[in-house]
């Protein structure tokens, strides 16, 4: 059974965990995350949505040719905090495009609602998805949680004082198309990088909580992630510099950029902080120039 899910969604730890639990429930699932070709149709979402959202819709649609079932989870909340409204609408927009373009009409689209903050909820959700895919109950219902932080070296064992910290949405940090290649440019310059996603979300959320004021709690998960990461990389374990990779037109990051910028201004001896707004442009030179200029500031180059 070929089950497709857009690669961009896999950068959420809970989605990875769901996938792993489904694998434990059935060995018959063959996952498909990349298509052989990109969706060529003019999609309905090609307006002023943010680029990651458009890419998620496009990736999901492009998988249709090559799968038996398409999984487009409606990610409402993770770890008790909300996702942006786009994630709530994603399944509907994908289905609308599928119907309108009459694409692989025989392929069912599963849109489970994802609101997970505990392993048990992930287990139950995995069973529900299994039922929807195979039309029957799984033989074994118990599944194990996976190690949430995969592949990342524990930051605590690393000296990050000379590293550049990268903060932003997980899919933006991980996907070169969405981050305009900033991590690669840093690597080519011989710079070590530290990612916000290498820190446990609970720790980031607790750090962000110091700025909450009753109802003025940051309710978006990604907002808590970037605010917590900024505090972590400035106060707890300072990095040499911080680059915030924000997608153009991202409503969450638009507000967070204001708050983070103001916070950096108020801090004594805060490491240099730069926002790179990433969009659909493919020009690399201007990104290289900005990153190099930032590295000059980090390295204390002075213009005489």
């Amino acid at each position: 059974m070929k089950v497709g899910i857009a690669r961009e969604l896999l950068f959420f730890e809970w989605v990875q965990e769901l996938k792993s639990r489904l694998d434990q429930l059935s060995h018959k699932i063959e996952w498909v995350h990349d298509s052989t070709g990109e969706a060529r149709q003019q999609l309905l979402v090609d307006g002023d949505s943010c680029y990651p959202f458009k890419k998620m819709v496009r990736s999901s649609i492009s998988l249709l040719d090559n799968v038996d079932v398409l999984l487009v989870p409606r990610i409402v909340a993770l770890d008790g905090f909300l996702m942006c409204p786009n994630f709530r609408a994603l399944p509907d927009i994908v289905m609308m495009n599928k119907k309108r373009n009459r694409l692989s009409m025989e392929v069912p689209v599963l849109t489970p609602e994802v609101d997970i903050s505990q392993a048990l909820q992930a287990e139950h959700l995995a069973i529900r998805i299994f039922r929807d895919i195979f039309g029957k109950d799984p033989e074994a219902v118990r599944t194990k949680a996976v190690e949430v932080k995969r592949g990342a070296i524990d930051l605590k064992d690393r000296d990050i004082s000379k590293s550049i910290a990268l903060i932003g949405h997980p899919y933006v940090l991980a996907d070169p198309c969405l981050n305009n290649g900033v991590p690669d440019i840093l690597r080519l310059n011989g710079i070590d990088t530290a990612y916000a996603q290498e820190i446990d979300f609970k720790e980031l959320s607790d750090l962000a909580a110091s700025f909450d004021f009753y109802a003025k709690r940051l309710y978006w998960r990604s907002a808590r992630e970037v605010l917590g990461a900024l505090i972590y990389f400035t106060r707890i374990r300072p990095a040499a510099g911080i680059i915030h990779l924000a997608p153009f037109n991202c409503g969450v990051d638009a507000l967070m950029r204001i708050e983070l910028m103001a916070l950096c201004k108020r801090m004594d001896e805060a490491p240099p902080y730069m926002v790179v707004v990433c969009d659909e442009h493919t020009q690399r030179d201007h990104v290289v120039t900005r990153v190099e200029a930032f590295l000059d500031i980090v390295n204390g180059v002075k213009i005489v």
């Binding site: 309905l44 307006g47 002023d48 786009n86 927009i93 309108r100 037109n249 409503g251 638009a254």
Partner: peptide, 16 residues
């Protein structure tokens, strides 16, 4: 307003 997250989705749906 430009970049309004919920209404951007509404715009897509309204075209349908």
């Amino acid at each position: 307003p430009f970049s309004c997250m919920p209404e951007t989705n509404a715009a897509t749906v309204l075209s349908v």
